[in-house]
Computed example of a mutant assay.
Amino acid sequence: MGRKVRKVVTLLGAMLAGTTAVVGAAGGVQAAPAASAKPAAGTQNCVTDDLLVPSCGVLWGAAAGGFTSAPRDAELKKWEKLSGRTASIFHTYHKGDEVFPTKSEIAMTSDAANPRVLLVNWKVAYGSTWAKVAKGEQDKRIDAFAKRIKSSYPDKKFYLVLNHEPENDVIARKGSGWEAKDFKAMYRHVIQRLDTQGVDNAVNVMAYMGNEKWMAQSWWSDLYPGDDVVDWIGLDSYVSAEKGYYHYGKFADLLDRKATGGKGLGWYDWATTQHPSKPIMIAEWGVYHRIGQPTDKSAGYNSVLPELAKRPGIKAIVYFDTKHDDEGNRDISIDSTKKNLAAFQKLAANPIFNVKIA
């Protein structure tokens, strides 16, 4: 599906889902989420459209077994059994020339009894730079991916994230190859190259990092590749359950972080104001406590549904579960205590997540 067709589908899908059409600052038609877009949970048959946007409700997903060598498919199945709900979104990670979708990823998203959509993060520039990718120096890598998709995964829609959390990788030095403008150029080049190669089943997600220091940078908004190549806007953000510890808070806090000093809009308001036509995916989220410091996470889990009710732009949430993060000191697992697991199971059971993958 070409980019022009994608934009029309997005608009029509938004209208059908109960959103309102508005004229953007540049004169283009955009779809802004309306307050009535989210019906009472469980009152309608919610189904995904051509860009995997649910007509109502919120898609539920997860990445399990993070920062371990355990097979991601097996870890997700264990997580689903523990939480009590199949993850409609199966989040995986790849880099460079790694061959994917893998056999296990294909199997997990071909399970008729447990329908799932693949959300894959790909660091295309691994071993290179964003600037070099944008110049075409990794076209062989991109074309190989396109060939695999068309041969082994031609009939399934999937979410594609290019280099999630790019803020963390920016080197704001002229000529570094890792400037914000280089990311934007890389993203545009890859998506346009995939389009020319006939990949029409990728749904593109731009995934930001929810951290105040990055929001304060002058280049933060410069990372955005453009509405014509982005289908969803994503956010990776976490909160601590320990009062007084780094990023202590509830679900609203991971959505509303502002630049250091409290200037400007919070992330959710920025996304819905600057890009009102784009559905929002919380592509990674979690509630953590320090390892060896078990803390009640239920307030964080209990805060999710009230926030979703107030924020119709959010169409998917994807939990990142691990007993230890990349720094080795945070436990983001849902079962760090029995009380935490019970609270998470209660959240998972809510019918707002009953969305059919079409």
Rank of each mutant, 00 (worst) to 15 (best):
Q44C: 12
D143P: 07
E284D: 00
G198Q: 04
P294R: 00
A146K: 05
I334A: 06
I357R: 00
E137W: 01
A26G: 11
Q30A: 14
D143Y: 11
P225G: 05
V190G: 04
A26W: 11
K78A: 04
W219T: 01
R330Y: 09
Y245E: 15
C46W: 06
G266F: 03
E327W: 15
T19M: 12
Y159R: 07
D200Q: 11
L305A: 01
P351C: 04
R116Q: 14
K132C: 08
N201Y: 06
P276R: 08
W267M: 15
F353G: 01
N302E: 12
A17T: 07
R188H: 02
V47N: 10
D296C: 12
A207L: 13
Q192H: 08
F90N: 02
K181P: 04
E98V: 09
D50H: 13
G18F: 10
D269N: 15
K156Q: 12
K243A: 10
V229Y: 02
H94W: 10
G136V: 13
N204C: 11
A343T: 04
V5D: 13
Q293V: 15
M215R: 08
D222R: 04
I317C: 09
G18P: 04
P225T: 08
E105V: 10
Y93T: 01
P351Q: 07
V53G: 06
G84P: 02
D139P: 01
S221P: 03
Y248L: 06
C56D: 00
P71M: 01
F344A: 09
G61F: 10
R148V: 10
Y268T: 08
S151C: 03
N114G: 01
R148A: 06
E167V: 08
N168G: 12
S336C: 13
G96C: 09
M215P: 00
A107C: 05
N204M: 12
L194C: 02
R85K: 14
A70K: 05
F320D: 11
W130K: 03
W60K: 05
S83H: 05
A87I: 11
R193K: 14
S333G: 09
Q138C: 12
R188E: 06
S55E: 00
I352E: 05
T273D: 07
N114C: 02
A41D: 13
L194K: 03
I233G: 04
Y246P: 01
I142L: 07
K338N: 09
M209I: 14
P71C: 01
G28D: 14
T129C: 03
I142Y: 07
V318A: 02
S336K: 12
G65L: 13
G96H: 08
G24A: 14
V355A: 01
K243F: 05
E179V: 14
V190P: 03
E80V: 01
V29A: 09
Q197S: 13
P351E: 10
D335S: 07
G226Y: 01
K346Y: 13
Q293Y: 15
W122I: 15
L119R: 03
T92K: 03
A180F: 13
L59F: 02
G175L: 09
L308M: 14
M206F: 15
R311A: 03
E212K: 15
T68P: 01
T20G: 13
C56T: 00
I89A: 04
G61S: 09
V120G: 11
A125R: 11
G42S: 07
